[in-house]
Design a protein around this nucleic acid. Structure first.
Lengths: 350, 350
DNA sequence: TTTAGCACTCTTTATCCCCGAGTGCTAACT
DNA sequence: AGTTAGCACTCGGGGATAAAGAGTGCTAAA
């Protein structure tokens, strides 16, 4: 059977309405909203066709139709009017970004929180490491005989540091000997390699230096471990409860639980796509089969990208969510680019 | 009217049962569970007295009684059997702690997550800074002409660092001049003081050095700002939906929203109390008036304490929650103590 | 002071029934 | 061949009514 323009028009009207109201729409109401004047009977025939083709579903015999996942997919791909975020909101978002994203730490959490505050749906933010980080450089700073500051610069340009406490007192000079050792033997290695290597050095170093060495390497290894796990932020979960689809407590609970406890399985855009929309059963995770996800990626620099996603009912307002999300992603890329690039080149993504 | 032993016994039976089942208990059922054999009519008389004294409430005329906030308070203070966490669970918790709490970063989030996984209720974790942090020491490390690592040690012994990008190229020697400047003029200051001071130095330093100086001070000021805000972790919110009291979507939504968005107002124990229980209307925040909170504090060292709290219905199992929470708090104090204390003194809180 | 008895209250649950929205089909119309 | 009008049918929602059950409060007797 063929998908005529009129069928598409009907589908669009139906999806638009269902997105707005969460109520099935009857043939009569559809007929009234159509450009060309037709009777409800005609619409009924078309609806029957659309159902047969799998674009629509019926909750029960005597209710109106609602879109199926396949219907939403068509809507998203072809029918939906691509919205742009309105100027006022864009300004508000930019302002918040300037204000919130200044610091250095917990960028993911703060990004997520901010995105969440601009969305009517639950939101998540994660990092996606394309390559495994290694240590690029070690530095040690003397504090007192029992404490040393260890500074570690990672291959992705992040710098981490901590205060280490020693059990045995150390000469300040010991640092001078341990530091080169670290930089020659322990840069560019994976966790496992680091742990393996330190075994070999046991007898080649003075005991109190070895202790320090060990401490620093442990710290660095922990860092790599920590870094390789993706950070996740989930926010706005309470919004779920305002959505009619999740009036069912069990559904709401399952989804919330999934988002906070299995957050590692939240979708990330395939390949390098800047944005992806996953509708209902297109999701891999069982818990998301009745929900949709819109997720966008932005560039953090240094081979890392960040992801922000929105979870909602299949009925969610894809156009609006996608518009906001891509605005966020673009702004974030711009912002991180600006902050981290050395030459002050403005507007790299105009 | 007097609060006889029998009245207390009845109250205890009632609260115990109500905590377990969330169902009001009738006079007949209570009579059956009492040590001394009495008739339901007697119990009814006692119940009437307890109601009059304000320890009980009646949802409606012909339902059983349920405890009032005052009733729970009496129960918590006098009647409740102080439980101890059982050995098996203690082992499980200790094991998880060893495993989860090794890293260095995001300790609060990880602590919260861990506590949450052992509780059947929503959980929060926050830091409580008793004093405002200042910078104790600055260090600069040369990377290349346009990048410098800035290391900042704070008065609470935390060490933070970042990579700074310069707009103007720098000699490695410039670091030698800026570093002492930082350490003499900018240690021990508040944010505002730092910003004020840098104004005064504008003309006293070479321009490219001033740029660096400015960058480092900005970074440090941001750090202080960041540090002074309390970090908050909220977890296990989805558990709320499994609790009969929160079957009401609006109630659940309000509480969840409060926990994640107004988390700064979550209770912390008054003074130095190691643990506090707040029952229903005893809570300051409006959103918590129908819930109870159990919160415990632990010592992180360096003038900071951490807090972990549990939010539940007024009907929550205070004995079990309190037992677990104080076990957590004690273990955490021990753990942070052990990790940070210089001499290997074991068991400082036996 | 305790207990048995009893009327009364109020919620919960089930059942029935009606209403309306919406469909699917047929037959007529263009 | 596509469109329309007409009509019987289906199904869920909402309201009313009724019966059941749990628990109380009060009275009067032990």
């Amino acid at each position: 059977m063929e998908l005529t323009t009129r069928k598409k028009e009907i589908l669009k009207i139906l999806v638009d309405s269902y997105i707005a109201t969460a109520e099935p729409l009857g043939s009569k109401a559809i007929a009234e909203r159509m450009a060309e004047k037709v009777s409800s009977a005609t619409v009924r025939n078309e609806l029957a066709d659309l159902s047969e083709m799998g674009y629509l579903e019926q909750p029960h015999t005597s209710a109106g139709r609602i879109p199926s996942a396949k219907g939403y997919r068509l809507y998203v791909n072809e029918l939906m009017e691509r919205k742009d975020i309105d100027g006022e909101e864009a300004d508000a978002i930019r302002a918040t970004m300037q204000r919130e994203l200044r610091g250095t730490d917990q960028l993911i959490a703060r990004t997520g929180q901010m995105v969440s505050s601009f969305m009517d749906y639950p939101t998540y933010a994660v990092t996606d490491h394309r390559e495994v980080a290694t240590v690029r450089r070690f530095e040690l700073l003397y504090v007192d005989a029992l404490s040393v500051i260890s500074v570690v610069m990672l291959s992705d340009s992040r710098v981490k540091s901590t205060l280490l406490h020693m059990e045995l007192p150390l000469q300040e000079e010991a640092l001078q000997s341990v530091s080169p050792l670290l930089n020659t033997h322990f840069t560019g290695l994976s966790q496992q390699q680091m742990h393996a290597k330190i075994m070999n050095l046991t007898d080649q170093v003075a005991p109190e230096s070895f202790l320090l060495l060990n401490r620093v390497v442990d710290y660095a290894a922990d860092l790599l471990e920590e870094t390789s796990q993706k950070q996740v932020y989930v926010g706005g979960a309470s919004q779920l409860l305002k959505i009619p689809e999740f009036r069912d407590l069990d559904k709401a609970h399952d989804l919330m639980h999934f988002m906070s406890d299995s957050s590692a399985q939240l979708p990330i855009p395939a390949g390098d796509a800047p944005m992806q929309i996953l509708i209902g059963p297109e999701n891999v995770s069982e818990a998301l089969k009745e929900s949709s996800v819109v997720v966008a990626s932005y560039d953090i620099g240094d081979g890392m990208r960040g992801l922000v996603g929105v979870v909602g009912p299949t009925r969610m307002d894809y156009a609006a969510v996608a518009a906001r999300l891509s605005f966020f992603a673009e702004s974030l890329t711009k912002m991180f680019g600006k902050a981290q690039q050395l030459p002050p080149k403005e507007e790299q993504t105009p």
